[in-house]
Design a protein around this nucleic acid. Sequence first.
DNA 1: CAAAACTGTTTCATAATGTGGGACAAACAT
DNA 2: ATGTTTGTCCCACATTATGAAACAGTTTTG
Lengths: 253, 253
Amino acid sequence: MSTVQSIERAFAILQVVAAHPDGVGVTAVSQQVEMHKSTVSRLLATLEGVGAVARLPESNLFRIGPSLLSLISQVPFHQQLIALASPFLHQLTAQIGEDSGLCVPDGDQVLQIDQVRGQQQIQVRNWIGERYPLHSSVAGKLFLAFFAEERRERYLRERPLIRYASQTYTDPDQLRPHLLAIRQHGYSWVLDEFADGLAGLAVPIFDSNNQIVAAVTIYGPSFRFPGDNRAAVLSLALDAGRKMTDLLRQSNR
Amino acid sequence: MSTVQSIERAFAILQVVAAHPDGVGVTAVSQQVEMHKSTVSRLLATLEGVGAVARLPESNLFRIGPSLLSLISQVPFHQQLIALASPFLHQLTAQIGEDSGLCVPDGDQVLQIDQVRGQQQIQVRNWIGERYPLHSSVAGKLFLAFFAEERRERYLRERPLIRYASQTYTDPDQLRPHLLAIRQHGYSWVLDEFADGLAGLAVPIFDSNNQIVAAVTIYGPSFRFPGDNRAAVLSLALDAGRKMTDLLRQSNR
DNA sequence: CAAAACTGTTTCATAATGTGGGACAAACAT
DNA sequence: ATGTTTGTCCCACATTATGAAACAGTTTTG
């Protein structure tokens, strides 16, 4: 599989330019990417031509240009989330060995928008694109817990808490304190609630207004998950969630 | 000035990929950019390698990848705004002939973060990087008008309305109804308030929470600006402001 | 105020690099 | 089963990118 060098070089240059918000010059870039001045000059001129970088006025320093922003502005938010989360999900799955996933609230349901498969012989099925109720899923309970009280109560009032498995919460008065605990702990877990034998963990991703926008989830069969290293799994997941929140906030203001 | 073709091609491909949120295949891309399948395949493979595009799971369709997002997530919000606004400012200046600018609120002041020069022999000076008070500048009055009441009143209460020019508002009781009018009209204008002989116009840019985040401004000497085509100038500016608001909302959710 | 050290751009010979025709395999539709 | 699409691979060809060095502008230094 052959690749195109100049493109790889261009992106290496973009990385460097992006890392210098106040602008970088040709020479500085050429040193960091270990390429010759003239090459960097040509590549930067090309990138400027396509709008990927722009020159600071009254100087010849480069910064990231408008075309990259307009490129991603065409991309729907879900997809941006998926892209943002992708490396973290892969890392989580690599570290923990179980499937990880990404869910967003979708009205009164949860929508699974991504899932990274582990290598286990026994694993959960593929849920990408599927919707499930808020009260019986890891991510759903997390969303309920972090929604504003009014939205949470409206759900508990209007939606019957249908039983999906042996441990599903079907009584609002039992679910409420559980949600409070989830909110206090900052993560959510399930065991035999959505399906018997299925265990899961979910941590939140917040936007710049502290609204919950998505959940990172980890699932596995309950005989194996979370296992002995429960604390380690939890801290890995929480850490990933925090990092994604930070990233999202940076990109959204 | 020579440019690197493969990079230009890569970005043409990225444009197409970005325009298809649900994924595009090699053949479809090759038709739209009018390049051969094998070339597109190679370029896309390279772009995938650097993370600029990613394959949809269980298919060979491409969508925009995580690296572009992480690139721009390193870019501070001001700079993103500048990049977002840049094409609009240039267009406005080209259409109207006067300097256009971009301002953000910065505490109790206005910060000018960008300015596009026109070709006039008599023109305003360069304000990039400068700060000025809220009550005597076009953008500042716009911010005051669209701030929450509490923040507006605190400013009017705590800050003396210093006179900068003959028509500066120095009495809060006269400024208040003026701000109300600005809010109702959706734009702000100024004449001999910041400096004698200086006229200006400002339109708002809002974020997804309807908070005002920036102002697009147009300045000129009052003997020439806004001139006969006042209505046309205004509608051009308002239109640009609306488009930038839309873009910002798209990229922020 | 000139010399020195830096900047970024340009030129140009060289060959390395990217190109596209076509063959190939794999998936899908008929 | 055949036919039609998909994406990838191979390879000869020359177009295309490359880097050394020279150049032209700026800023720093003495």
